[in-house]
Every structure is written in structure tokens, then in C-alpha cells.
Amino acid sequence: MYKWIAPALAAAALTFSAPGWAHKLMGAGERVEVARSGMALTPTTDWNKLSYRPGKFAERWTMDGEMLNDVIFYTVPANEPLLREVDKRNRPLPQFQANMLAVEIPQLLESTKRIANDVAIFTTTSSTPAKLGGVDGVKFTYQFVGTDELRRNGEAFAAISNGTLYMISYEAPEIHYFDKDLENYRKLVESVSIAG
């Protein structure tokens, strides 16, 4: 009966005091495996990997904070959602399916963001064939407005290999930030290799 008091207090203390977790430097030139699954890459500039994951099969990198430049790596197996469920009972996220076509991935991301981030306006602006880590896939661009009313742009590369969805997305405010870090993000994409 009492044994959960200590963890509860620890949790309460965490909410009050400075979090002890550290974000990790992803230094330029170091080959790293991301999102625990076969996808490796070499950043050409320094990035930060945030210590909390946005989903079981996702990892988040940023330059200035996820509100200003937000790179997410996804390695999602079949029948799993892209991000952590916000309200699985009442607003479940759509799941990746192994028989999806690459051309349908933009809509999967759109649906996920509409539900998980309360995005009311989302437009896919382009969708073209592209390779990710040597695998044929899709590159797409989009625009959206979230609850903070700030207009943001996005660009993503996705490919499906052996029933797993590999995707890298980049999102940033339309004003200034999107253009500022676009090339850095694209260099990450260019260096990606997918094992298996």
C-alpha cells in the first residue's frame, strides 16, 4: 500500500525542481544509429537529441527547441502509430500498415498531426518520388497551423522497407526558421543509410 509513495514523491519533486535529464549532443561527423532501428546517419553540423521521445518508434532532434526547428526520425513497424497516443480511447492515432503505398504516407502524417497536435489546417503542397537511405520512397512538403496559431512548414522523406516505415520530417515556423535550417536537415537526410 505504501510502496508507491516514494516514487510518487520522486515524481512530484521532479515537477518542482530542475529536471535532471540531459539532452544529447549529436556532434558533426559522428555516425549514429537513430530511433533504435537500422537507420544510421552522420550529421554535418551539431544537433541536439531531446531526451524524451515523441513516440515509441520516434526520436526528436532540434537546433533551438522543438517549437522552432523540429526533426523527427521514425522507424515504425506495421500496425503501430507514428507518435505516442494522446487519448487512445477517444482519439486513437492511425496506424502504419505494411501494405500502404509510399504515396499514401503524407496522409498518414497529416491524420496523425490533426489528432495528436490538434492541427486544424494542414495542406500537403507537393509529393515527389525520392530515395531515403537508398530505398525508393517519397519526399513531400506541407503547411499547417497548430493551436499556437503559428504557421509552420514541413518537409519529409519516407520509405517503406521490409514492412517498416522509415521517415524523417522537419517542421519549423514559416517565418525565418524553416528556411534557416532546411539545408542542415537535408544534409541529415542525404547521409542516411537503412540496414536490412
Partner: peptide, 22 residues
């Protein structure tokens, strides 16, 4: 945008324990 930047400054620069490595 200013609010987003200010929030990021607080979270990731001023908050020493949570500071981004860069």
C-alpha cells in the same frame, strides 16, 4: 513567434539543467 522563441529561450537556454548541448 516571439512567444515560441521566448519559451524556447526559457526551456533550453535559461533553464541550466535542461540546456541544449549546442
Amino acid at each position: 513567434l516571439f512567444n515560441s522563441v521566448a519559451d524556447s529561450v526559457i526551456n533550453y537556454q535559461f533553464f541550466v539543467g535542461n540546456r541544449l548541448e549546442t
